[in-house]
Amino acid sequence: MAESSNGGSRPEVVVVTGASAGVGRAVVREFAKSGAHLALIARGTDGLEGARREVEACGGRALVLPLDVADAGAVDRAAERVERELGPIDVWVNDAMVSVFSPVAQMTADDYRRVTEVTYLGFVHGTLAALRHMLPRDRGTIVQVGSALAYRGIPLQSAYCAAKHAVKGFTESLRCELIHAGSGVKVTMVQLPAVNTPQFDWSKSRMPRRAQPVPPIYEPEVPARAIHYAAHHYRREWNVGLMTDVAITGNAIAPGLGDYYLGKTGYDSQMTAEPEDPNRPDNLHHPLPGDRGAHGRFDARSARASEQWWVTKNRAPLALAGIGLLGLALLAARPRRA
């Protein structure tokens, strides 16, 4: 039985949006391993039922809530049901997303509207629903699943990059307000690297070749472990994967160089050599049938661990150890009196 955020011994109650597949599905598995009871939000019922079975196999309870996070009222009603059936919400993980792979000149207003409704406003709706229950209790944690693309836009994913930038701005504003109020509610953002998920086979695409995450690629269990850790060890923001650090830092130092580099390499790095089927179905407006699980088709190329994440988690003790070693070195180098 996991300890809940209220310090008691009841099972932790966790809401995960985008729970049917990809990173969200891996997050469900990670929390289920620690004995949490989970509310599973997504549009695809097949994937949600698969996730429910995995939670129950770990001994937890699962509440399946098929809905579109673009519907604020549906999200509010789901939160009320979670509180009634599972108990007070301890952690809310916003992860649901849709995307379109396309040059800006070929995008439509409907493409931008739909990606914004899910990938940005879906986070807003989830956050507001969580706050309505967490603020009166003065406890709880909201985890926003972000991306290096919240800092550094890339070609062919303008709608998704814009939505992640918006989530970052929204989260920073909320964090300031929670600090002003002296609230015990925490909000953190976990910025992810390229991850091997099914999104590259079900997102809408106008590219001539099949989409791929920009290497290096990580298995979804890597960010899932980070998200679970972030929910229980507060820091305003967590980066996962070395290239996430590189992209964020590089963009702060030399954004123009990033524009040039991505303008030259950002197309080919997001496509495989295989031709895309222009008539394949996508999940922009409606879920696709079937249980897609957590992984995409890039297992052979994906890392199962991140050394950068270990360093990030342990930066405080590592810094103290470094200071201690420096002090010893200075003492050893000090001239001795004759």
Rank of each mutant, 00 (worst) to 15 (best):
G8R: 11
T17F: 06
S20D: 05
V23Q: 10
G24A: 05
A26Y: 02
A26F: 08
A36L: 10
H37V: 00
L38N: 06
A42R: 02
G44W: 03
G50N: 11
R52V: 05
C58W: 00
V64K: 04
A70Q: 01
V75N: 08
V75K: 06
V82K: 04
R84N: 10
E85M: 01
I89C: 13
M97S: 15
S99G: 12
V104E: 09
V104C: 07
T116G: 05
Y120I: 01
L121T: 02
L121D: 01
A129T: 11
L131E: 03
R132G: 14
M134H: 03
D138F: 02
T141K: 00
V143D: 04
Q144I: 02
A148Q: 14
I154V: 15
I154W: 01
P155R: 05
A163V: 05
K164G: 04
K168C: 01
L178C: 11
A181P: 01
S183C: 06
V185T: 10
M189S: 14
V195L: 03
P198Y: 02
P198M: 07
P198S: 08
D201V: 01
A211R: 04
Q212W: 00
P213N: 07
E219N: 09
P220R: 03
A224T: 12
A226E: 07
I227A: 07
H228K: 12
H232S: 08
H233L: 09
R235C: 02
W238L: 14
G241P: 08
L242G: 12
M243C: 09
T244S: 09
A252T: 11
D259M: 07
K264D: 09
T265N: 13
G266D: 11
T272A: 07
T272D: 11
E274Q: 14
E274D: 15
E274V: 12
E276G: 06
N279G: 12
P287V: 11
P289R: 07
G296R: 03
A305E: 15
A305V: 07
A305L: 04
Q308A: 15
W310F: 11
V311Q: 12
V311W: 04
L318R: 12
L320T: 11
L320Q: 15
G322H: 06
G324L: 12
L331I: 08
A332I: 00
R334K: 13
R336L: 15
R337T: 12
